[in-house]
Nucleic acid binder design. Structure first.
Lengths: 233, 233
DNA sequence: ACATGATGCGTATGTTATACGCTAATAAGC
DNA sequence: GCTTATTAGCGTATAACATACGCATCATGT
């Protein structure tokens, strides 16, 4: 499957000139799959449903897509699209912060994408472009290649971690912390209980605290970059 | 399903004294599911397979588990187990770093867990205990509840982000960066290509760079905590 | 006109999870 | 010890799913 997925994501998009011309296309199939996932969740995305939505037979899809796994790999790369232009002129920190916010926007706009993104899979061109864009923010800084990579990964990891509770809790109320209803729970999880006591987490301000954590991560990166810039050590 | 999963994870474990005694048990089923996932991957975990492994009929499993979704929720909480004791006496930073490493160890030991962890689901007692343990590292620091929460989340997010490439690339070679094989790819992703040029990412030293990123994140958190401690502003 | 080659898709297959109802096995009440 | 209530084990049936195969269809190039 890795091989097929790779060819589909990266292979040349040449369409044949001979034979019966296609009414369906890979792009339309993927777009429909993304639309269904956005509207009703990933579990509603089935080959049958996509075909119905497109007014075609189920097996016709397989002329354009090797299988469902590969289709899902395509969904991520299509949904994430091309990254935004970053304000490199304002410095790496501002640029990376913008990159982080855009990444968060993607996961919020396509709630189904976060679990898929952590799946082992082939990375597509658009996603590679996002990585490249993130790295471009650090182009002028005195970091090794691996340091650059892990810097972007640290930011990316934070974004994913911070956005998840926002996606989960969106249904209703704090799904967590029901343990605090009984004394045994309060005793077993004193520190988590304390969070409830001072009224934290009841407020619905995910965006504000996203920024809080992001600043902390960027602070840490900034400190290292500043140190590397000094000619001592 | 949320309701069932919640009751199963948090409900009392009392076994009935009346009726036919059980040969199967919830614990044995979950343990077997985890064993299969560890050895052969999550996609091999089916109700049929679990039953075969336990020498029982498929439908017998449903006497002890409401359904597969709930079983998977249990798998995470069982596999992660109880968190390690942290060296609080050495300060929050050392303690949180230990917590981060233990979290990483969990995801490495159970490769199937990372995508599931990002899924929307009910959090179980063990996972709550991990959160509580992480928060306990910050108990003495001058942070608000929300700040504590997002501090732990920042570390947790970093861990997940940093461990993922390690899990993916474990099969063989760098699945990424095949684009660099042709000039068009090199031109399209100049910054990512540059990483290859200086020999980064070829070395197999994930652990070392895990520590690098972790230190950066902790640096950022430390700076904030130090500032809060000062009586100015 | 005709061969070529690709597309659209109905049918069939194998794999899932799981609802339902029957049978078996034990403990509590008499 | 016998009955009855209560629970566990599980065979069968069902519905949803991805997808292999083969055939009919419809353009293009000769």
């Amino acid at each position: 499957m890795g091989q097929d997925a790779y060819r589909m994501l990266w292979g040349p998009g040449e369409r044949p000139t001979r034979g019966r011309p296609a009414t369906l296309s890979r792009g339309r199939i993927v777009a429909e799959a993304v639309a269904i996932a956005d509207a009703e969740g990933l579990e509603k995305v089935s080959m049958k449903r996509i075909a119905e939505q497109l007014g075609s037979g189920v097996m016709s899809l397989y002329r354009h897509v090797p299988g469902k796994d590969e289709l899902i790999a395509l969904m991520i790369d299509t949904a994430i699209g091309t990254p935004p232009q970053l304000p490199i002129e304002d410095g790496w920190r501002t640029a990376l912060a913008e990159w982080a916010r855009a990444t968060r926007d993607f996961f919020v706009a396509h709630r189904w994408a976060l679990p898929l993104a952590t799946l082992s899979r082939v990375i597509g061109p658009n996603e590679t472009l996002w990585l490249d864009r993130g790295l471009s923010a650090l182009a002028g800084e005195p970091l090794s290649g691996e340091e650059r990579m892990f810097t972007v990964m640290a930011v990316n990891g934070y974004v994913r971690g911070a956005v998840q509770p926002e996606l989960n809790g969106a249904d209703d109320s704090p799904e967590w912390f029901r343990f605090a209803a009984d004394p045994a729970g309060r005793e077993r999880f004193p520190n988590a209980t304390a969070l409830l006591a001072d009224g934290s987490l009841s407020a619905r301000t995910p965006q504000r605290y996203f920024e809080f954590g992001l600043e902390r991560v960027l602070d840490g990166l900034e400190r290292y970059i500043e140190e590397q810039r000094k000619p001592d050590a």
